[in-house]
């Protein structure tokens, strides 16, 4: 049940402003931690601004959608939805400059596959990725634990897909005035596809999004479900809550409309370049620092221990020999 879930308890926010504030805070925190040597006035020449960061995240959300659409074997929608949730949650508290969205995105999809019981092996998974697959699987597996930690292990996601089914069943049963509710499907899918590109999934409950999608589809077909919502669905015990719901539906639909704006490609390229320069080398698998750290981890701890032991006994024995002479 959504109302008792961690999703409701920890990952629902009050407004877009609050989300943006959190992201700005993340941005400044990152710059304070890594930009001590950069003068205050022109730190944004080097680092990404919060706006640029969110543009980057948006861009990779589009990539995530396309990646999931083109995935083979075909992926159920709830996997995609869960991956979107993970991606968005991750970048509320983490900077794009610290962890590159390219890597986090695939890790989110991989983790979502597991959580939603869409069974693919890592080998099968990386065969959907272009380029060096071994490196990709290394990156995914290395980031998986980090991702889970950053999600606070709140892995269960309530997607709007089941609520949509429930509402359609309910409409078919209790609202005979609408003929053939199956006609609504294309409109519903259209809105749900877009809603994941917005922050709405961090602000509204999945059932609210499902209802918004159904109302959106109905209005596209010039049908009216208002009396179903006000009288049948909410009825007597929901009288006072109706206003809040109308507000939510309106909010979701307007956010979806805003999501249509495509980012400027040239600008995106510039930001990509800038990010390549300012990203944290500690978490960049191509950097020397990262490689060294991984190597050090690989070296057996026992070996280090043995080295110390050996040098100690050698020292001891050398003093003994001196005495024997």
């Amino acid at each position: 049940m959504f109302p008792t879930s961690t999703q409701c308890k920890y990952w629902m926010f009050s407004s877009e402003e609050e989300l943006n504030q959190l992201r700005e805070k993340t941005n400044t925190k990152h710059i304070q931690a890594y930009g001590k040597n950069v003068p205050e006035a022109n730190r944004y020449d080097y680092f990404l601004t919060p706006v640029e960061e969110s543009l980057m995240a948006k861009r990779y959300e589009l990539f995530l959608r396309d990646f999931c659409k083109g995935f083979s074997p075909p992926m159920p929608r709830n996997v995609t939805g869960t991956a979107f949730h993970y991606f968005k949650r991750f970048y509320v508290n983490n900077s794009v400059m610290n962890y590159h969205p390219k890597e986090i995105m695939v890790t989110c999809v991989y983790l979502a596959c597991k959580v939603e019981e869409f069974n693919v092996s890592i080998g099968q998974f990386v065969s959907n990725i272009k380029g060096d697959r071994e490196k990709a699987s290394d990156i995914i597996l290395n980031n998986e634990l980090l991702l889970m930690e950053q999600l606070n292990y709140h892995l269960a996601i309530h997607n709007p897909f089941r609520p949509v089914e429930g509402l359609i069943i309910d409409i078919k049963t209790r609202c005979q005035s609408l003929n053939d509710p199956e006609r609504l499907r294309p409109g519903i899918d259209q809105l749900l596809d877009k809603v994941f590109l917005t922050d709405a999934i961090l602000l509204y409950s999945p059932s609210q999004m499902a209802l918004a999608a159904i109302l959106h589809a109905a209005s596209k077909l010039q049908e009216n479900l208002d009396s179903y919502v006000t009288d049948t669905l909410f009825g007597v015990d929901g009288r006072g809550k109706l206003e809040e719901l109308i507000e939510a539906v309106r909010g979701i639909r307007s956010m979806v409309k805003m999501a249509d704006v495509n980012p400027d490609k040239n600008q995106m390229k510039l930001i990509e370049k800038k990010l390549e320069k300012c990203r944290n080398p500690d978490n960049n698998p191509d950097s020397e620092i990262y490689k060294k750290r991984m190597q050090a981890l690989l070296d057996d701890e026992d070996e280090v221990y043995n080295q110390i032991m050996n040098s100690n006994t050698e020292l001891d024995n050398s003093t003994l020999n001196m005495q024997a002479l």
Binding site: H158, P163, S207
Partner: peptide, 12 residues
Amino acid sequence: RALQDALAGLFH
């Protein structure tokens, strides 16, 4: 289950 999921959280 679908019905419960559809109705839960509508007052959120």
